[in-house]
Design a protein around this nucleic acid. Sequence first.
RNA 1: GGUGGCGUACCCAAGUGGUCUAAGGGGACGGUCUGCAAAACCGUUAUUCAUGGGUUCAAAUCCCAUCGCCACCUCCA
Length: 469
Amino acid sequence: MSLKFFNTRTRETEPFEPIEPGKVGLYTCGPTVYHFAHIGNLRTYLFEDLLRRALSMAGYKVKHVMNITDVGHLTSDADEGEDKMEAGAAREGRDVWEIAGFYAKAFQEDLKALRVMPPTLWCKATDHIPEQVELVRTLWDKGFAYAAEDGVYYDVSRFPRYGDFARKDLQGQEAGARVALPGGKRNREDFALWKFSPRDKRRLMEWDSPWGRGFPGWHLECSAMSLKYLGDHFDIHCGGVDHIPVHHTNEIAQTEAATGRSPWVNVWMHGEFLVVDKGKMSKSSGEFLTLSAVVEKGYSPLDYRYLCLGAHYRAPLAFRFESLDQARAGRRNLMEKLKGLDQVRALPVAEAKKLPSWTRFWECVEDDLNAPRALAQVWELAKDRDMDPAQKAGLLKLMDHCLGLDLLLPEPEKEQAPLSPAEQDLLDGRAAAKAARDFARADALRRELESRGILLKDTPQGTQWSRKR
RNA sequence: GGUGGCGUACCCAAGUGGUCUAAGGGGACGGUCUGCAAAACCGUUAUUCAUGGGUUCAAAUCCCAUCGCCACCUCCA
């Protein structure tokens, strides 16, 4: 058995082989912290978390690096618009640094709520300015960079493999372009390595460089930081599918040009989008749903995690509240079936891994992280009423390590507001009516209670009540 | 306009040449239980995979056409 992943670089599903036995270097593109993450963004981090967990469970020691981009991400790839961070600050009338800190923290809290394991190492773009300047210098010295009006640019024509990763047909695109390139750019695809600060305006985030005062271009931080922490050849690099044509293409171009080494990264993996109605969720289109908004509507972050696990990471997932309702119902039903197993002394991991049920589960995970099928295996197990509880608990513990749904950690019962005197009267009245076998009256009282949000359940131990969730 | 992808039951969704008369979940319906319910349990719910052709001993899976939808080529996970 071995892990197989779909590699964007080769467009094939291949057995995973680490560069160094037993170890994996993993870089996942983190957020630009100019706004809250929406649940579409978060889907990608959930996919990466599944990958991370699968690698760990396969026995690899994973060094996982994730960036926080807090500077240099422009509102347009044409390198025209503003820096998103500065734009975010202007929008909210706050300091850029404040904005960065605030949204980075919010992001990390979202991940925590979703049970996404934190990376081995977080790194911030603004903490690595010298490394980025150094990288520009290397590219400059090697002749891959040139100065234009508003910054230092990467010359894609110097890197023949430029379009390969995204399978872009540059010839075709250039032929159709016919637009004058602004500001002295040599090629349409050239991107900024270093942007100069505007003459008339003082930025809060700017640094000196040999080419002029300014700030690093987006793309650069991921190259500089992954080079620093994972080296010029590492195992896996992830992100959303949207990163294939621009961000990752540019990262590869600048990194491989600088190091002269290819491939820089063996396996590239990309998560598909969460789509809303007929389109993707995006920060600009107004369809913007944060995790906290979902929680405020009464869902658990794990309901969303469960929803995402129900679809393969490489397939678009249609989001609707109806789907989320279904996920919530499914997760609750599953938890209900597993109730009490947390009290059981579970079979040790080594033993549980020998059971066929585990093998079936793990085969799904190994097959390019097929979470939907893995989840189906969890259900098969949960429904098995003949299995020894110790085995069952051991297996579920293992599976949950992989899925991160806290299956054996029941959510604390919500504090229920005690019955009001009026409600208590109704309850007592029904009990009396029931005892007198006046069922019509008993049912009427139950309906009355239900309309107040109280559900009754008659058990051999008497009537239990609960407030509607 | 160019490029890539998708279309599986009421809903979400797996499966990408034979084990598929298509996994799993949600929902619905029927049954057991109950005074009746709820919960639980049992069962039912696609001979069919957008449509029409074709290739093959064999197709949801490959090819072609048609229709519908989406993404990228502006920013985006």
